[in-house]
Simulated assay, not measured.
Amino acid sequence: MAQSGAVEPEETIELRANWNVAPTTDVPVMLERSQSAEDTHNATKGDGERREVHVARWGLVPPWAKDLSVGVRAFNARSETVTEKPTFRAAVKARRCAVPADGYYEWLKPAQGAPKGARKRPFYIRPADGSLIFFAGLYEWWKDPAAAEDDPQKWLLSCTILTGPSPAAGSGDDTLEQLSGLHDRLPLPMNAETMDAWLDPQKLGSPDEAAALVDQVRAQANQTASAWTLDEVDPAVGNVRNNGPELIEPLT
């Protein structure tokens, strides 16, 4: 909340430490809501907007989904097509969020010509200064048609993280060169200015407006990512049953 400018949640929110977050797991999200004039004294941005912390299921479930299975395939959204895909195109106009994280894992595939049986190697990627990453995300509310009207679990909040192309080789920046060789996709981080624009709760009027905002996020992603550092970590992170601070310790 301190790093994002969010207000203290009105309801009780339980956020447990998790060193191995998998799709369909609960994650924190930041979003902004317009509020009535009498509530603006609580806002951190002023002008009737309130930045809030919520807990969402990682894997977007759109309102038209018949069940939760859609979310298993929608934990990432390609920024190049997010304004066109039915799962995401409504959310990108009106329900944008930020997904905060201390860091994330990415796997390096064996080099071409590597010996048979060579395995992928995991890397932990994080801001070098210990700050949070705020990934560009989308959120949706889904109503379970099988639940009773008075069931407190009837409504589900879910989210997805936008991705874009990894930095191109030859940038001259050590971190970006490492990211370029690690994977062909990059979860899109935001700096403070971009996050302010992304979280604006005003509904965008057209796919072109949404595409322009996505382009803004993508345009600054590499600069934001250049402040990261990468450490190779133990392959134990590949098993979601392993969950503890030892997973992010660099291999020696």
Rank of each mutant, 00 (worst) to 15 (best):
residue 1 M to Y: 05
residue 3 Q to I: 03
residue 5 G to W: 00
residue 6 A to F: 00
residue 9 P to W: 02
residue 9 P to R: 02
residue 14 E to I: 15
residue 15 L to I: 14
residue 16 R to K: 15
residue 17 A to Y: 08
residue 17 A to W: 10
residue 21 V to H: 06
residue 26 D to E: 15
residue 27 V to A: 02
residue 27 V to Y: 01
residue 28 P to L: 01
residue 28 P to G: 01
residue 29 V to C: 00
residue 30 M to F: 14
residue 33 R to T: 07
residue 33 R to M: 05
residue 34 S to W: 03
residue 38 E to V: 09
residue 38 E to Y: 09
residue 39 D to T: 11
residue 40 T to K: 12
residue 41 H to S: 13
residue 41 H to C: 10
residue 43 A to E: 12
residue 46 G to Y: 06
residue 50 R to M: 13
residue 50 R to T: 04
residue 52 E to V: 09
residue 53 V to E: 00
residue 57 R to D: 05
residue 57 R to F: 07
residue 58 W to K: 05
residue 61 V to Y: 05
residue 62 P to M: 06
residue 65 A to F: 04
residue 65 A to R: 03
residue 66 K to G: 09
residue 68 L to A: 15
residue 69 S to V: 12
residue 76 N to F: 11
residue 78 R to N: 11
residue 83 T to M: 07
residue 84 E to A: 12
residue 85 K to Y: 02
residue 86 P to T: 05
residue 88 F to Y: 09
residue 88 F to C: 02
residue 88 F to R: 01
residue 91 A to L: 02
residue 92 V to M: 02
residue 95 R to Y: 08
residue 95 R to V: 04
residue 98 A to P: 01
residue 100 P to R: 00
residue 100 P to T: 02
residue 103 G to S: 10
residue 104 Y to A: 06
residue 107 W to R: 06
residue 107 W to A: 05
residue 108 L to G: 03
residue 111 A to I: 02
residue 113 G to N: 11
residue 114 A to Q: 06
residue 115 P to H: 04
residue 115 P to Q: 08
residue 117 G to E: 04
residue 118 A to Q: 12
residue 121 R to T: 14
residue 122 P to L: 11
residue 123 F to L: 07
residue 125 I to V: 14
residue 130 G to K: 11
residue 132 L to S: 13
residue 133 I to H: 01
residue 134 F to C: 01
residue 137 G to F: 00
residue 138 L to D: 00
residue 141 W to A: 07
residue 142 W to K: 02
residue 143 K to H: 12
residue 143 K to L: 13
residue 143 K to E: 15
residue 143 K to Q: 14
residue 144 D to V: 03
residue 146 A to V: 11
residue 148 A to S: 14
residue 149 E to Y: 01
residue 149 E to W: 06
residue 151 D to A: 10
residue 156 L to R: 15
residue 157 L to S: 03
residue 158 S to D: 02
residue 161 I to V: 14
residue 164 G to V: 10
residue 164 G to F: 08
residue 166 S to E: 05
residue 167 P to Y: 10
residue 168 A to K: 15
residue 170 G to W: 03
residue 172 G to Y: 03
residue 173 D to R: 08
residue 174 D to M: 11
residue 174 D to F: 10
residue 174 D to H: 13
residue 177 E to K: 01
residue 180 S to Q: 11
residue 182 L to E: 08
residue 185 R to Q: 10
residue 185 R to M: 11
residue 185 R to W: 03
residue 187 P to K: 01
residue 187 P to Y: 00
residue 188 L to S: 00
residue 188 L to H: 01
residue 191 N to I: 09
residue 195 M to T: 04
residue 196 D to I: 09
residue 197 A to V: 10
residue 197 A to E: 13
residue 197 A to H: 13
residue 197 A to N: 12
residue 199 L to E: 01
residue 200 D to A: 10
residue 200 D to K: 08
residue 201 P to M: 05
residue 203 K to E: 15
residue 204 L to K: 09
residue 205 G to Y: 07
residue 210 A to S: 12
residue 212 A to N: 12
residue 214 V to L: 07
residue 214 V to P: 04
residue 216 Q to L: 15
residue 216 Q to W: 05
residue 222 N to A: 13
residue 224 T to Q: 15
residue 225 A to T: 10
residue 225 A to K: 11
residue 226 S to T: 09
residue 226 S to C: 07
residue 227 A to Q: 13
residue 227 A to N: 12
residue 230 L to A: 10
residue 233 V to R: 10
residue 237 V to P: 04
residue 238 G to A: 04
residue 239 N to E: 11
residue 245 P to H: 09
residue 246 E to I: 04
residue 247 L to F: 09
residue 250 P to K: 06
